[in-house]
C-alpha cells in the first residue's frame, strides 16, 4: 500500500529524514511514534508527496487524482476555514471520487458520520464545535474518502478518553477489514493496545519497527524518549504507564 525507499529530506541544511525505508501492507494499523520535532509530520507529508524529497515513495509517484483514491490524509493542523455544516465538511472527502454516483457518495458520507457518531452534530456549523468535535469531523472526512490507506497526523490529540479509544478501535477495525492505517501518535499506552505495529522514529531514522512488545522496551523508551515506564502484560495486551524522565547529561 505504501512503500518508501531511501527517503531523505533536508530543511535549511538540517537533515530531517535520513534514508527511511518502509513498507506498509494491507491489514496493518501502524503507529508512528517519536518525540516532538523528530520528523513524524515531515515523514507523513513526504510519503504523500506534499513536499519535495529525495528517494522514492509509491504514493508520491502517483498522479494527484490517483493518489487521492489510494490514500486519505488528515493533517495535524485542523483547519476549517468557513462555517460550513458538519455534513458538508465530511462530504469534502468525496471530492477524491469525481466520477462516483451520487448514491455512492451519500452512502460513504453516512457511513463516515455513523462511524464517528456525528449524527447529532451533522447540521451544526463546524467552526462552532469544540476542538475534539472538530477532530472527529475531520477524521470522518478522511474516512468518507474510502481509500485503501488512511494516513492521519495525531488524529486523537485533544479527544476525550472515550473518543480516543473509539477512534483507535475504529482504525484497528479498518485494518482488520484489510485496509491500512498509518497514524502518528503521542499516547504510547493507546498505541501499545490498539496498533498492530509500531514505528519509532529517532533523529530522522527508524529506531525500532515491529509489534508493540518489541518496540516499547525500557531500552528504547530511555534512548528515544528519555523516560522510564512501567510495562506489563495485561488481559488486552501490553500495558504502558510512563513514570519519570531520565536526566540527560
Amino acid at each position: 500500500m505504501l512503500e518508501l525507499r531511501a527517503l531523505s529530506f533536508r530543511r535549511a541544511g538540517r537533515v530531517v529524514l535520513d534514508g527511511i525505508d518502509l513498507r506498509i501492507g494491507a491489514g496493518e494499523f501502524v503507529g508512528l511514534l517519536g518525540p516532538n520535532g523528530v520528523g513524524k509530520t515531515t515523514l507523513l507529508r513526504a510519503a504523500l508527496g506534499l513536499i519535495p524529497v529525495q528517494g522514492h515513495s509509491s504514493l508520491a509517484a502517483l498522479p494527484v487524482h490517483e493518489r487521492a483514491r489510494a490514500a486519505a490524509y488528515m493533517p495535524q493542523g485542523r483547519q476549517i476555514a468557513w462555517p460550513m455544516p458538519v455534513e458538508a465538511l465530511v462530504a469534502l472527502g468525496r471530492i477524491a471520487h469525481p466520477r462516483a454516483a451520487g448514491l455512492d457518495d451519500r452512502a460513504a458520507i453516512e457511513r463516515a458520520i455513523a462511524a464517528l457518531h456525528l449524527e447529532p452534530l451533522r447540521h451544526r456549523r463546524a467552526t462552532e464545535l469544540s476542538g475534539g468535535e472538530q477532530a472527529r469531523t475531520l477524521i470522518a472526512r478522511a474516512l468518507a474518502q474510502e481509500t485503501p490507506l488512511l494516513i492521519a497526523d495525531e488524529p486523537i490529540a485533544g479527544l476525550d478518553p472515550a473518543a480516543q479509544i473509539e477512534v483507535m478501535r475504529l482504525f484497528r477495525h479498518l485494518a482488520d477489514q484489510g485496509r491500512g492505517v498509518l497514524a502518528s501518535l503521542h499516547d504510547l499506552g493507546l498505541a501499545a493496545r490498539h496498533c498492530t505495529r509500531l514505528i519509532l522514529l529517532g533523529q530522522g531514522r527508524i529506531a525500532a519497527d515491529g509489534p508493540p512488545e518489541t518496540v516499547l522496551t525500557a531500552e528504547n523508551l530511555a534512548r528515544i524518549f528519555g523516560i522510564t515506564a512501567h510495562l506489563t502484560h495485561g488481559p488486552g495486551g501490553l500495558l504502558f504507564q510512563p513514570l519519570d524522565t531520565i536526566p540527560r547529561d
Binding site: R45, L48, L50, V64, H65, R67, A68, R69, A71, A72, Y73, M74, P75, G77, Q79, I80, A81, W82, M84, L89, L92, G93, I95, A96, P98, L138, R141, Q145
Partner: peptide
Amino acid sequence: EALTLGEDAAASVG
C-alpha cells in the same frame, strides 16, 4: 471547497 481544510488536505483529495 476542498481548500476549506487547508492546502495539504486539499492536495490529498486530488
